[in-house]
């Protein structure tokens, strides 16, 4: 006979299984977050750590951020990059998914190959596109030259640099939206499609009125995931433009990086990081409300 009732001993066993992970997770996420928030209330700078670690002006960094044009620029750049890139990923991913959503066996091989851009180390993606965007070595530039349409380097062009990065990011991540849409398409029941065909709808109408409403939730979730991820974009910018020309491609993440590890203004960089974290939290909360994996049953 067990000492504890079976139900209770079972629950205890589960707690023992869960506790170590929660402790570790707490130590490596909650504590650093706490430290981050604390430091963001100080003007901590590594050039003079002792004297700059005080709380005389806790909201000083935040007030300064509000007036910092370079920061505000980084936010606008971030928004431009994220929104354009995610929109492109959704459109391209949707298109490719529709194209590849058929039974021919060879298409499943194509679908598998399309996974590659997504799983490549981001640094390799950055290298690939560094090559593509450097006129001296790029086959694309050379081809255009041979055809008589020489194009100058995109990544040193203030007007085109952000678009170049957006394009590279779309190349890297469209397979993600493609996978999400394909999964939704494959779960779609056949009956409404057949009924529509019998009713005489053409392909565009079928798409607009039947297919699209069904896959829209998948698109929304994919879009949210990609949006959050886009805030982390680093290697592309680091390798392709290093935030330039000027600050044209300096996204918030990059600006924080510069503040922390070029200027060693840790207090200030922490404030930037706190704001980014808040944004990630908000978007995660939205995802969990609009259809995360694990609804509490």
């Amino acid at each position: 006979m067990t000492i504890l009732p079976w139900e209770a001993s079972r629950k205890r066993a589960f707690i023992i299984g869960l506790a170590p992970a929660l402790l570790v997770l707490g130590a490596i996420t909650l504590l650093p977050t706490l430290a981050l928030i604390v430091v963001s209330f100080t003007p901590l700078s590594l050039t003079d750590p002792i004297n700059t670690f005080h709380f005389n002006n806790p909201l000083g960094n935040y007030r300064q951020l509000w007036a910092d044009t370079r920061f505000l620029n980084s936010v606008s750049v971030q928004l431009k990059l994220s929104l354009s890139s995610v929109a492109l990923q959704l459109v391209v991913g949707l298109g490719v998914a529709l194209l590849l959503n058929a039974r021919q066996a060879i298409l499943s091989a194509v679908r598998a190959v399309f996974l590659i851009p997504m799983v490549l180390p981001p640094i390799v993606v950055a290298l690939i596109w560094k090559i593509m965007y450097t006129p001296e070595v790029s086959p694309l530039h050379r081809m255009l030259e041979n055809v008589g349409l020489p194009v100058e380097s995109l990544i040193t062009n203030p007007d085109m640099a952000l678009w170049a990065i957006s394009f590279a990011e779309t190349w890297q991540w469209f397979p993600f939206t493609m996978l999400m849409v394909l999964a939704a398409l494959q779960m779609m029941p056949d009956d409404p499609l057949e009924a529509a065909r019998i009713d005489g709808a053409n392909r565009w109408q079928i798409f607009k009125y039947i297919v699209f409403p069904y896959i829209r939730p998948a698109l929304v979730i994919a879009g949210l995931f990609r949006l959050i991820d886009s805030f982390k974009a680093f290697p592309l910018i680091y390798v392709l433009t290093n935030g330039g020309p000027g600050t044209v491609t300096e996204v918030t993440n990059f600006y924080g990086f510069i503040q922390a590890f070029n200027f060693s203004y840790w207090g200030y960089a922490s404030a930037i990081a706190v704001l980014m974290l808040a944004g990630a939290f908000l978007l995660s909360w939205l995802i969990s409300r609009w259809g995360g994996h694990h609804d509490d049953e």
């Binding site: 006979m1 067990t2 504890l4 009732p5 079976w6 139900e7 001993s9």
Partner: peptide
Amino acid sequence: RINHAAPRD
């Protein structure tokens, strides 16, 4: 009495 015994017991 097996009120709260584990199934295996």
